[in-house]
Design a protein around this nucleic acid. Structure first.
Lengths: 193, 193
DNA sequence: CCCAACATGTAAGGGGTTACATGATTTT
DNA sequence: AAAATCATGTAACCCCTTACATGTTGGG
């Protein structure tokens, strides 16, 4: 891949598993080349343009294999959405509804993106997958495909949980609105923390 | 709260929604005080010790309310667990199993933490909640409690989805192990990217 | 008396974001 | 000819992490 291809790749649905901006990709590729994990080949394009294609080295492969096998670190999270939800009594009902609708929209869009990707993988029509399978004996293709699908279905399941949660929130909100529709005035919280 | 109380608080289960290390908390509290969002009161403890308790100001409350109401930004994620899972064909089956078991363990521990918290909130035995309810008229308590439970049940639902996913992975792994147990040799991937 | 918990910091550095910058090539 | 896309970068900055650092208080 070239830096630009990596940049474009992170802008597709895989960008929701891992992403990086161009300003990080180019220096990082150079760093990885300096570390011997990558090699590069410059090819001219047109009269003056040139593009640098990177190839993984044996050392790079070994390092990647090391990473895949090593235990994952579970770092403390920061979850703005659920943090906000824990303080929804501070928000206007209309804004709460908007938060939840946005959440549903976001995750439904992601679900359909992941589903499209899964279909491409099952069909073996995904270009990245096709390229990757070429370096493996055919009897291992199904295993590789199964792992990709497994990973992406995990993302789908998570987003489905988020949608169901936000939907429940909307229902709760309607319940509250019903029980309050005869009421009036400022429901904002009081003074102390 | 004092800085130390905030630090301790972030070490409990709420630390999985938002966390901060002490080295970030103390400067941040000072910054917030400088910005007029907080006020502080120093109280001596013992002969020489002292502790600084922070109180939110009207400006701080307004800023918080602004934050709760403003739309959330959905930033691109980085998900090491699912990223790794997408490349499990590079890992030893034993390590894959270990990854998945760790994942299940992690999320089951979180589920039980959140469930404990939900019980405390339903019971109204959670100290932080009790303190917070005091500043509201009693007829709004149920609404506040409902929002907290809603937020935390979202975390539970998400972790349940993660556990179910990892469990499915273990099942797939057993299936693979069965279909391969008569086989032998190096199943490592080949040379190209 | 010692150790755990209380309490509050500083300093260096890394990783990442945002903004800025430039030029070539291809498409409309 | 203009706009979009390809292609590659630099610079400043901020947030955050890791590590270091110090002293107090209360309980066993």
């Amino acid at each position: 891949m070239t830096g630009y291809e990596a940049y474009k790749y992170f802008q597709t649905s895989v960008g929701y598993v891992w992403h990086a901006p161009d300003s990080q990709i180019y220096p990082e590729l150079r760093r990885m080349e300096a570390d011997g994990l990558l090699e590069s080949k410059e090819t001219p394009m047109g009269k003056k343009g040139k593009r640098k294609t990177y190839y993984i080295t044996d050392a790079g492969r070994e390092d990647f294999r090391r990473w895949v096998n090593e235990p994952a670190e579970y770092v403390r999270e920061r979850d703005p959405v659920h943090l906000r939800a824990a303080y929804f009594e501070w928000a206007e009902p209309d804004n709460i509804r908007q938060h939840l609708l946005t959440h549903i929209e976001y995750h439904e869009s992601r679900i359909s993106q992941w589903q499209d990707l899964v279909v491409e993988i099952v069909n073996r029509s995904n270009p990245t997958l096709i390229q990757r399978l070429e370096s493996y004996p055919e009897d291992q293709w199904q295993k590789i495909i199964d792992y990709k699908i497994f990973a992406y279905e995990g993302m789908i399941a998570r987003s489905r949980a988020e949608v169901a949660w936000a939907q429940k929130g909307l229902d709760t909100l309607h319940g509250l609105a019903d029980s309050m529709e005869h009421m009036d005035g400022d429901f904002s919280p009081g003074v102390r923390t």
